[in-house]
Design a protein around this nucleic acid. Structure first.
Lengths: 229, 229
DNA sequence: GTCTATAGTCGGATAGAC
DNA sequence: GTCTATCCGACTATAGAC
């Protein structure tokens, strides 16, 4: 498995274009990224894009697919653990909470602390507002399974029905506590007077989010007011 | 004040272009929005853009300025009330919490429920990831004062120092609970199997966010663990 | 103030040599 | 597989008639 078994893999132009695409598509979005800038950043010829990917859109799909695989490789295990714990009726609350902690910490460290995680999440954010033909790839390949696992965990910890819309809304809102730091990074950094998220800052953010999420999950299988719908 | 006192206000081409810009810049971003599509959507001649605004960038700045004014007109009073309550040492917790509820409800109703609020927030989201020269206009004109008021309220309700970075992080995270529904609207709607946010759904979201925010603010002026930095 | 016509540039894709 | 040269359409902005 040293190579991806591709007929045209000898020079690495494919991979160089994908790497450049992760950066440039994330920075400027699909439409505003030119094939010339992609070829220049990758150090390959312009004609390599139609040759290897059939065109700009093909390159974008390849970038999207690569990102989904890479994020699943990094974060998949945490969601997989959550899913298996939720399927186990014997799993205790402490075990569930520790899986929650691990997931939030991994998510914060990856999307805020690593350059690969930052670049990948940047394209996922672009996809949220632009809605290119690759949205399904992101949703089916990553968001759907991740959100299902997260919702299941929130349902289990609060004694709610994972299928009820209110439970999904609760889970999404709680996830927003960490997502805002990535989506609004420029505003957040400016409001804090920071230049970037240091490793210590990332740890603080994760810790604060975990604490506040746990506080919201505390009223577990109690009265369950149910929301407002 | 029937007119904005502009020397070139007779035909309304300026306003029609700004209205079109709010929609199109929000949908596709600054770079990917063409002057042709703007002129067509506004029903004015292409040359009207350089004439009235000096060019595409001038139109974008006018759009940004218009959005800041409009959002301040809608949401400013809520932040103003929070600010004045925080400055009043006699304000009770119930009063503060009711101001919090009102603000979250107004924010949800505006950004999720009204077309004007949706369009305006869409450009603010674009600005978060693209970082055009108009970012300062948004930050100075809206985000900064709004976040300061919100942080002050969270500080007051939790007995923390509003100037401490951890308090700002806490406030930002809590705000993320409502922001995620706007930023990730497509993913949220798809995950819920919804076509759009109905008024009832917006109410549910606001109610759930308020409840979970209050739960995180509950451990008020108690031990105050302080976070992890 | 509004229009047509056009300049000058940049976009993605292709043909064909090597 | 990689390159150069090129087509053709779309872009922003301007000139000048009305």
């Amino acid at each position: 498995m040293t190579r991806q078994r591709r007929s045209d893999a000898e020079s690495g132009a494919r991979q160089k274009l994908i790497d450049a695409g992760i950066i440039l598509f994330g920075l400027h979005g699909y439409e505003a990224t030119s094939t010339r800038s992609l070829a220049a950043a990758a150090g390959v010829n312009l004609a390599a894009i139609p040759y290897h990917f059939g065109g700009k859109e093909g390159l974008y799909r390849a970038v999207a697919s690569h990102i989904v695989d890479a994020r699943n490789a990094v974060l998949g295990p945490y969601f997989e653990r959550i899913r298996s714990l939720c399927a186990d009726p014997a799993a205790g609350r402490d075990t569930l909470v520790s899986a929650l902690r691990a997931m939030i910490q991994a998510l914060a460290a990856d999307t805020l602390g690593t350059s690969q995680g930052r670049d990948a999440s940047q394209i996922m954010i672009q996809e949220q507002i632009a809605l290119t033909p690759a949205f399904d790839l992101f949703y089916e390949g990553f968001f759907c399974t991740a959100l299902d696992a997260w919702t299941g965990l929130v349902a289990r910890l609060t004694g709610r029905d994972a299928g009820h819309p209110d439970t999904r809304l609760r889970a999404l809102a709680l996830l927003g506590q960490i997502v805002i730091f990535r989506v609004g990074a420029f505003t957040v950094l400016r409001h804090l007077g920071w230049q970037r998220f240091t490793p210590e800052a990332v740890e603080s953010i994760a810790e604060i989010c975990i604490e506040q999420i746990e506080a919201s999950l505390a009223p577990a299988a109690a009265a369950s007011p149910g929301g407002a719908s």
